[in-house]
Each structure stands twice: as structure tokens, then as C-alpha cells.
Design a protein around this nucleic acid. Structure first.
Lengths: 194, 194
DNA sequence: TTGACACCACTCCAACTGTAGTACTACGTT
DNA sequence: AACGTAGTACTACAGTTGGAGTGGTGTCAA
């Protein structure tokens, strides 16, 4: 079992790309090797089996999704009103839609998690922690709305992104901003009402 | 190419089960044969290739999801207030969560649709029509809320179901009814406000 | 009798996995 | 400075699997 962390990360990133591009059907050790531009057999040296590869890829997606420091900074400036929240949500939709690989890979992994307890465990923790962090952040910064607001936003925004990534013609492109605005407007109480 | 429609439908139903159970990676002609309890090679006689199998399975899911006549009838009785809408939504979540195969297969197909234009076309039409029918039904029966309400409900409810099916521990089981209620409460205007 | 289909068996094929063997590099030792 | 060692990259291969597709035969119904 090889240990080189940079190479391992590169292989995992390649695995994420393969997952997004070819689906879990196309995710083989060889495909990972090729996507990473390393000789055949390399992935075999780093991951004992498919399950290892998938769970580590899940952790890697987590790792790459977490930071987003620019957005955090942006949220801390200016007023904390609904307009700001709307802007944040629009930014979120745009940002994730613009880099679909991670999100698509995550969906593939979710479906795989149905059959792989270890993977399910990892994804559960990762997504639950993320959601909790969002709630905390939201409440702490004084953005409009309560904890339920954040959870409901999470639900709707995620499916909106899924629709855009997989079946973009179900909801016309130009309705997206309007929908996000309506979501915030209805899910977060008006400023006066707090 | 065989034509027997009953057998074809049985093969497609088997394909849906395989998709839900084993994912698109496990969807092979042989697996379909076995799931349908027919001799090996049969699926080959009914579908020229994988693409055919998937697109026809997509259409078949559509076919099986459409009816739901009992729920329609239920929606037509009693008052059309928010409590009724909440009950309808809860029923929807329960009903779909209780028969996960169709929903999981649909998700697998969505991801496949990323790479298969024909499949994307079929799923898009099917889901768009469904959503439009829901909007029409909602408005016609006078349930609370406007067209946007229905779309936003569609988004949030779908991801809620996805979470329950794939990572049930992200959102605790017992929070689901409460979340559905909060959704309806916030997305549909109060009765007096209409 | 003819045509369509179910069933069965068989062959071909493609690809993946995992490992063994070799070469390289870096580092530490003497 | 020379040497030895450990870890890693690379290459090739051997074994295995499993699926696709097809041709032939039996059966049933028109």
C-alpha cells in the first residue's frame, strides 16, 4: 500500500472526475489511472478495493467542498437582510452549478451509499456536519430566519441544483433567480417580523 | 426483436428493480433476465442495446408513477386549506418513501441522462409534464398557494425524500412531519391572505 | 404449414483485478 | 564518498470473470 499523499489525492480527484463523467459504472481502477495520467495499476497500489476507493473519494469531496472562504467573507460584510440572503443563495446555486463534477460525484456516491454502509456513514457525517455548520453560521451572523429556514433552504436549493445539472430544461434557466428569491422571501420571515 | 408487450413490461419492471438495488453498475442484460425470472439472453432479444433498455425503463417508470388515483380522490374531498395540503404532502412523502425502488431508479436514470441525450429528453418531458399537471391540479382545486408554491414544494419535498432514501440519518425520522408542516406553512400563504 | 416466440447452449470477446518483477530516487550509514 | 536500504514508480502479465449476442430447436396458434 503506497503512502504518497499528493499522489493519493490526485487519484481521488481523478476518481471524482470519472464518477461525474462516466457514472459509477465507469469507475474502475484503470479509468482512475487514465484520468489521473498515471500508469496502469497505480490505483490498485493505493486502494485495496472498490469500497476503499469510494469511501476515500467521499471524504475527498467533503474536503474540497468545505472551505469556500471567499463566500464566508462575503456573508460577513454589509447588512444581514433578506436581500443579502438571497444574494448568498444565488451565489451558492451559481457556484455549485458552475463546477458540477463534485456535486454529480456526490450524487453517485449517495446512490452507492445505499449499498455500502461504510460509505453511508461517511457521507452522513459529512453532510450532517455541513448542515449544522450552516445553521450555526446563519444564526450567529444574524441572517434572517431560524434554524428551520436553513434546513428548508438546504432541501429546496439542493434539488434546484440537481434539476439544473441533470435535466436543465425542466426548470427554465431564467426562472432560477426568481425561484431563489421566492424561496428566501417565503422561508425567512420579513425583517420587521423578527 | 421480440414484440410481446407483457414480457417487455416485465423485463422493464425487472430493470427498474435492478437499477434501484444494484445501481447502474449492476444493470446488465443478464441481471435483468435473472430479476425477471426468464432465461438468459431474453433481454438481448427485446432491447438492441443498453441505451434502448434505459430509455424504455425511463418511460416505464413514468407510466407506473402517473396514476395514483386514490390520492387524487383524497385531495378532492374535504376543505382545501393548509391542513389538507400538509396532509397531502405528508402522504406523498410516505407513499414514495415506502416504495423506494421507483424513486431510486429514477435517480439513477437522471444521472445516466447526463450522458444520454435520448434519455434526458424523455425524462425531461415526463417530469416537466408531471410538474405542470401538479400546478394545474393545485390551482384548479383551490388548494392554498400559487404556482410558485407548487414548484417550491416540489423542490424541497423531492430532496427530503432523497435524503430519507439515501442518508436517512441526516434528517432524523421524527423531524420529517414537522418539516413538511413548516414547508407548507411558509410556502403557501395563510388562508386569510388569499 | 407457416410464422413468431420461448428457451437453451455455446462461443466469442472485452475488460478488470491484482501481483510480480524491475528500475529509480532519496536518505541514512559507515 | 561509497554503499545499502526502503519506499515508490513503472511495466507487464496472468488469471479470472462475466457479459453479449447468436444460432438452433421446440412449441403454439393462426
Amino acid at each position: 500500500m503506497r503512502q504518497n499523499p499528493a499522489r493519493r489525492a490526485a487519484l481521488l480527484d481523478a476518481a471524482i472526475e470519472v464518477l461525474a463523467r462516466e457514472g459509477s459504472r465507469g469507475l474502475t481502477f484503470r479509468a482512475v489511472d487514465e484520468a489521473a495520467g498515471v500508469p496502469r495499476g497505480t490505483a490498485s497500489n493505493y486502494f485495496a478495493n472498490r469500497d476503499e476507493l469510494l469511501t476515500q473519494a467521499g471524504a475527498r469531496v467533503h474536503e474540497r467542498f468545505r472551505p469556500a472562504p471567499a463566500t464566508v467573507a462575503m456573508a460577513l460584510e454589509g447588512p444581514r437582510d433578506r436581500a443579502r440572503l438571497t444574494a448568498l443563495m444565488r451565489d451558492l446555486v451559481e457556484r455549485i452549478s458552475a463546477f458540477p463534477s463534485g456535486q454529480l460525484a456526490l450524487l453517485e456516491l449517495r446512490l452507492e451509499a445505499t449499498r455500502r454502509p461504510r460509505l453511508r456513514e461517511i457521507l452522513t457525517r459529512q453532510i450532517r456536519d455541513d448542515l449544522e455548520a450552516n445553521v450555526d453560521f446563519h444564526l450567529k451572523t444574524g441572517l434572517p430566519g431560524d434554524a428551520t429556514t436553513v434546513v428548508l433552504l438546504y432541501l429546496a436549493i439542493n434539488w434546484l441544483i440537481l434539476d439544473r445539472l441533470t435535466l436543465p430544461e425542466v426548470i427554465p434557466e431564467d426562472r432560477v433567480p426568481e425561484l431563489v428569491e421566492a424561496l428566501v422571501e417565503r422561508l425567512a420571515p420579513a425583517e420587521g417580523a423578527r
